[in-house]
Design a protein around this nucleic acid. Structure first.
Length: 270
DNA sequence: ATGGTTGCACAGCAA
């Protein structure tokens, strides 16, 4: 039996990118795709092209920011908007709200979470504190899932907005004093690893110079100046079943690409 | 062998 193919992709607006996304879905024979930065409301999400290809879709989006989705052709059950304990964000002059950054669903026997970790913006910005709290809450909740059932196959996938290792950015000098590489962020990411959620892609795609994101400006992509910030973390029961992984760098090329490439894994069926 | 920002609420913010 062929493996279950699970992918994650920060699409940077699904309405702008739906043709590219569905083309790739079909071409790459993806069974489950977690998307981030859909940048639309639920009503605006273009579900029809996914349905035509045989995928069900779950989405949460409140406005033009954030937005996460899961498309699946192997079932889409027990949909959960936000994770338990997900911190709220209080914009100036607005009530605190849970942002559209986390969506869970069970697909083909795997509990999949599509995650868009807060960017942080700057080390002295309130958004940075929010980012660290968000990651700590996710760790606590996810650790609880494994405490309840150590054999659960769980995938925490998405745009983590953290480069965990120096090799995960094209220049540490360039990012001196910036978010994504700071020690507190790396510690927060490592805490998920210590809670037994392992990066199941890196063993198949060792660095240096292996990235998932390239800024639109400054010719970053052709200059190979990127960052590895999109990850698929698997619980122990999932990680042992991963037979292949890759970063679909080709999808960063061509007309109107996202600034992120898709990341995918093959999971042996049981 | 690709791209020189992009996307959204079209103005200024977010990434």
């Amino acid at each position: 039996m062929t493996a279950l193919r699970l992918a994650t992709w920060n699409v940077n607006s699904i309405r702008t990118r739906v043709d590219r996304v569905t083309d790739w879905l079909a071409r790459a024979e993806v069974d489950v795709l977690a998307m981030q930065e859909t940048k639309c409301t639920d009503a605006q999400f273009p579900t029809l092209p996914f349905h035509e290809l045989g995928y069900e879709v779950a989405h949460v989006g409140h406005n033009q920011w954030n937005g996460v989705a899961i498309a699946s052709r192997v079932g889409l059950d027990d949909i959960e908007v936000g994770f338990p304990g997900q911190p709220v964000w209080a914009k100036p002059d607005a009530d605190p709200a849970v942002e559209a950054r986390a969506l869970g669903a069970t697909c083909g026997g795997v509990r999949v979470w599509s995650l868009y970790v807060p960017n942080g913006r700057a080390l002295n910005d309130p958004h940075y504190t929010y980012k660290l709290e968000w990651l700590a809450a996710l760790r606590d909740t996810a650790a609880g899932w494994l405490a309840d059932d150590p054999s659960a196959p769980i995938a925490l996938v998405g745009d983590w907005n953290i480069a965990p290792q120096d090799d995960d950015v094209w220049s540490m000098e360039f990012f001196e004093g910036a978010t994504h590489v700071s020690e507190p962020e790396r510690t927060a990411f490592r805490a998920l690893t210590e809670a037994q959620f392992l990066d199941v892609v890196r063993p198949f795609t060792p660095g240096p110079g292996v990235y998932t994101y390239w800024d639109y400006t400054q010719l970053r992509f052709p200059k190979k100046q990127g960052m590895r910030i999109d990850f698929i973390l698997g619980s122990p029961a999932l990680a042992t079943r991963v037979s292949h992984a890759e970063i679909a760098r080709e999808e960063r090329k061509g007309k109107s690409p996202s600034d992120h490439a898709p990341v995918l894994v093959d999971i042996q069926r049981i």
